[in-house]
């Protein structure tokens, strides 16, 4: 779980924030509310999830409850890979 959390953090920071020093990212921060990811970014995120964790994300699963923070993502991956 911790390993996944780190992977997710690395991906979000390098891929969406670009700025590693100045934008602190809490694990509960909402990506959408904070403007970290826009709605096209969500699809980028899904592609990465599917590739990195060898899972398939259905359209029904594309909801903020699953994807909208580091912790939510981490729990979602845990469920999908268990």
């Amino acid at each position: 779980m911790q390993e996944n959390t780190d992977k997710i953090r690395d991906f979000i920071i390098s891929n969406f924030l670009f700025d590693t020093e100045e934008t602190p990212l809490e694990n509960d921060t909402s990506f959408l509310e904070q403007g970290i990811i826009d709605s096209t970014g969500v699809l980028e995120l899904v592609e990465w999830l599917e590739e990195t964790f060898s899972i398939k994300v259905t359209d029904e699963e594309l909801i903020p409850e699953n994807l909208d923070s580091v912790n939510r993502l981490s729990r979602f991956i845990a469920r999908k890979t268990s």
């Binding site: 709605s39 096209t40 969500v42 699809l43 980028e44 359209d59 594309l62 909801i63 903020p64």
Partner: peptide, 14 residues
Amino acid sequence: ALSPTRSASFAKQF
């Protein structure tokens, strides 16, 4: 190709 509306739930928020 990268439509912001593929995910209606996110789009609603966005």
